[in-house]
Design a protein around this nucleic acid. Structure first.
Length: 508
RNA sequence: GUCCCCAUCGUCUAGCCCGGUCCAGGACACCGGCCUUUCACGCCGGCGACACGAGUUCAAAUCUCGUUGGGGACGCCA
């Protein structure tokens, strides 16, 4: 799709910055959302792959919208995902003096000028242009002001913003984006943009560049929505006499209506925290997110950390936006089915000890944790998880669907009750009778319980499945689960017998 | 409106740069089968796409142009 020469320009072009340094600069105006998380992961992968550094920088210059809570949320989210940074977090607000100094320099070097046009004036011009169906760009009236005129206006105490002087010549600015290829923008299409507000505060475009220069960022990896900012930022780098980083823009993640996902309009479904609460394994989410816009040429989709770091490159990144196919109000999937599928995959393939550690946290929250699970019941605990996890999708399932394994106050699934218990009235007598036969055994083993069940079924002249599934319902509250003979043995004689005898209650 | 970007199954995508091996491959989802005491896993099979139109060519998903559709950016937000 894109010429190879262009794609590998990072490796071929001489670069004054030998060290790979990338950054993730969230603005703390809300929780960490999956789009931001994906960008962070890409940066992290790139840094790890090239032995570089990931800098975390909190862009908190919008004091009104930034919150401490949000900062903490972002940090927690990254940490949970396993995205580790090497420097920071730095806070953009602490470098205000530097941003100002840069603005002053641009002013004295003649790369910027003071603009006294009021917001109202500009607004009027914008509206007039819109009414005439034309497009508006700052007309540069203040750029033409003589030094005397500027002095005069300043003497009058008129407020001013500082605008950058975009070259007024036929050329264009361009750069080789690592994902999108050559991107160019004619000077005439760029207006003299504001870099400092009338209250003296520098704007994002400038701050961001100044910070990236100071942090010696070699590769700017960010969302495609930053693509059209890039030409202006390059102008800033040039004027500031700094070397250019390499740019790589990622396609965006869209919602079902193909609109950019945002915290504001999508709520929890796009928040990393939500997945944490819903029982996602952190790496499963990361793995899924990475696949939204990146792939390898082979058919691999499941990657360990190491494998991903090894496999990752800009080459595998698509240029088209991808849709986050979440399904709200779907009884089976509460988010993108693929995300659930990947989570389920990790849930049943990860070393059981790892799953155990995560389930422990879940159980502690649910009041299901028993200290003995870390002690004498540890083997039993892990084996139970191992048996149960095969058909679970999230960590929460252990405490909900799997509750009967660990506690006596579990819920009876309605389908299980109707289909596997009430449908066969004979079970009202048979299950307690089965309990008696189990009681006669020294302990419940897979083979013994199977023998007993089959013999009993034969005596009764019914299919063993009726007995077994009826038992499953009253013992686990579920319509599905592992082989019941293993379940008998695992749940243990006492609970099994009690629950089988209690079957009569369902017939009243 | 202006500038820019994008366009393959419902979704994520491979293939496109270097045209034939692609009546387009994989994954998820969905449907069916096998397995089975259930469900799940696993395995087997099915459904399902090159946005449209021209052009170039012996040959186009791949190259060119146009159309349409979608997205992003156009702030004294970040």
């Amino acid at each position: 799709m894109l010429s190879l020469a262009l794609r590998c320009s990072f490796f071929c072009k001489e670069n004054t910055m030998t060290e790979v340094r990338v950054r993730f600069p969230p603005s703390p105006t809300g929780y960490l959302h999956i789009g931001g998380a994906r960008t962070a992961i890409y940066n992290w992968l790139f840094a790890r792959k090239h032995g570089g550094k990931l800098v975390l920088r909190i862009e908190d210059t919008d004091a009104e919208r930034s919150t401490q809570e949000s900062i903490q949320g972002i940090l927690d989210g990254l940490e949970w995902l396993g995205v580790t940074w090497d420097e920071g977090p730095y806070f953009q607000s602490e470098y205000a003096a530097e941003h100002m100094a840069a603005a002053k320099r641009l002013l004295t070097d003649g790369n910027a000028y003071k603009c006294f046009c009021s917001k109202e004036e500009l607004e009027a011009k914008r509206e007039a242009a819109a009414a005439a169906k034309g497009d508006y760009r700052y007309d540069g009236v203040c750029r033409k002001l003589s030094p005397e005129q500027v002095q005069e206006k300043e003497a009058q105490g008129l407020p001013y913003v500082i605008r950058f002087k975009v070259p007024q010549e036929p050329g264009k600015v361009g750069f080789d984006d690592q994902v999108y290829g050559r991107v160019e923008r004619a000077y005439e299409d760029i207006e003299d943009f504001v870099i400092v507000r009338s209250n003296g505060m520098p704007l994002y475009l400038l701050c961001n560049v100044v910070d990236d220069i100071r942090d010696r960022i070699s590769h700017v990896i960010r969302g495609q929505d930053g693509l059209s900012n890039t030409p202006r930022q390059i102008l800033l780098y040039r004027a500031l006499g700094a070397p250019l980083p390499i740019f790589a823009h990622m396609p965006l993640t869209l919602d079902l209506n193909k609109a950019k996902i945002s915290k504001r309009s999508h709520g929890e479904i796009v928040s990393v925290q939500f997945y944490r609460e819903q029982g996602f394994l952190p790496w499963a989410l990361a793995n899924f997110l990475v696949l939204l816009g990146w792939s390898t040429s082979d058919d691999r989709e499941i990657f360990s950390r190491e494998e991903l770091i090894e496999a990752f490159s800009f080459e595998g990144i698509t240029r088209s936006n991808s849709i986050f196919n979440y399904r709200k109000d779907d009884p089976k999937f509460f988010t993108d089915p693929k995300a659930i599928n990947i989570n389920a995959h990790y849930l049943r393939t990860l070393p059981i000890e790892e799953v155990g550690a995560l389930v422990k946290v879940e159980f502690q929250k649910e009041g299901l944790w028993d200290a003995a699970y870390d002690g004498e019941k540890k083997q039993w605990f892990l084996k139970t998880l191992d048996m149960a996890r095969e058909r679970f999708h999230t960590l929460k399932d252990f405490a909900s669907l799997g509750r009967a394994w660990f506690a006596d106050d579990f819920a009876m699934d309605e389908t299980a009750l109707a289909k596997n218990v009430l449908k066969h009235p004979g079970l009202k007598e048979w299950l307690p009778m089965l309990a008696e036969r189990f009681e006669a055994l020294p302990e419940l083993s897979h083979d013994e319980t199977e023998r007993v069940c089959r013999e009993f079924a034969e005596e009764l002249g019914v299919k063993v499945g009726i007995l077994v599934n009826g038992a499953r319902a009253v013992i686990t509250g579920q319509v599905k689960g592992p082989s019941m003979f293993e379940v008998f043995a695992q749940i243990g004689k006492q609970r099994v017998v009690t629950r089988l005898k209690g079957a009569t209650q369902y017939f009243e």
